[in-house]
């Protein structure tokens, strides 16, 4: 800039606000493109570092996964949301699988006479699929690392199972309007099977417990709609939930 630089007294006047407008403008225009004059501005080291730390924290913060963002928006603590977003059972492929299975069940309900039975049979199994994939040496690549962490495996499994359950229930609930007739008969068996899978936790790995229960359930469904989904059966599912919830709560508190 023709060898001209902002003299010290001019800069001082500019900084304390006492410089007439025209001079201030020329200082500003010059400083914007003169590295030497930029460097001549006084620096408060402490302010600079603090200001930088705040910026680094923002720009270097990875964008939260969509699931994390959604969960924190619902009021979940941030660290729990980040944790749940890592659930192997909550990947897009799992959700797509659940949606696909539901699509099939809904289609079957429209096509066949015995219709709703397929849907009712499939819906309660879906959360089990998620739980099978939620935690364990076979399904979680970081299982060995997680096993050495102070957070307990039981808590990891429960948190993830709850997340998977909620996701499965939401997707299943969303499919209900597409059915020929309204039904909520799948809900209690779904909860009972999930509870049973978790209650079996100390005895069986999640994927084994889930497979066992799913097989048992699918074997029981042909017994007929009334036997499996009638009022007495529903009452039994609700009753079964009580010890499962109790066991779950006890395990949770022991963790």
């Amino acid at each position: 800039m023709n060898g001209w630089h902002v003299p010290d007294d001019l800069r001082a006047a500019y900084l304390d606000g006492g410089l007439p407008e025209a001079a201030a403008m020329s200082v500003e225009v010059h400083v914007a493109s003169c590295q030497g004059c930029q460097a001549a501005f006084p620096v408060q080291e402490e302010w600079l570092e603090e200001s930088w730390a705040a910026i680094a924290d923002v720009v270097d913060r990875p964008a939260p996964r969509p699931l994390t963002r959604g969960l924190t928006a619902l009021g979940m603590p941030e660290h729990v949301a980040v944790f749940l977003a890592a659930t192997p059972g909550l990947t897009r492929s799992w959700l797509l699988g659940v949606a696909g299975a539901l699509g099939f069940a809904v289609a079957a309900a429209h096509a066949a006479d015995r219709s709703m039975l397929v849907f009712l049979a499939v819906a309660p199994v879906l959360p089990l699929l998620g739980i099978a994939a939620a935690y364990g040496a076979r399904v979680d690549a970081l299982y060995e690392v997680a096993s050495a962490a102070p957070i307990s495996g039981g808590r990891v499994l429960l948190l993830r199972a709850m997340a998977v359950l909620v996701a499965a229930l939401l997707v299943t609930g969303a499919a209900t309007p597409a059915l020929p007739a309204f039904t909520a008969a799948w809900l209690l068996p779904s909860l009972a099977l999930t509870g049973a899978a978790l209650a079996l936790g100390p005895l069986l790995a999640p994927h084994r417990a889930s497979a066992l229960l799913a097989a048992g359930w699918l074997a029981a469904v042909p017994a007929g709609r009334e036997a499996v989904f009638g009022a007495p059966a529903q009452a039994a599912y609700a009753m079964a939930l009580i010890p499962f919830v109790y066991l779950g709560a006890r395990r949770w508190n022991r963790l």
């Binding site: 990875p62 996964r65 603590p77 660290h79 980040v82 944790f83 890592a86 970081l142 690392v145 997680a146 962490a149 102070p150 957070i151 990891v156």
Partner: peptide, 14 residues
């Protein structure tokens, strides 16, 4: 980052 952060949460860094 996410991978290490996940383990950090398992290590109770809330």
């Amino acid at each position: 980052f996410e991978l290490v952060e996940y383990v950090a949460i398992l290590k109770e860094m809330n």
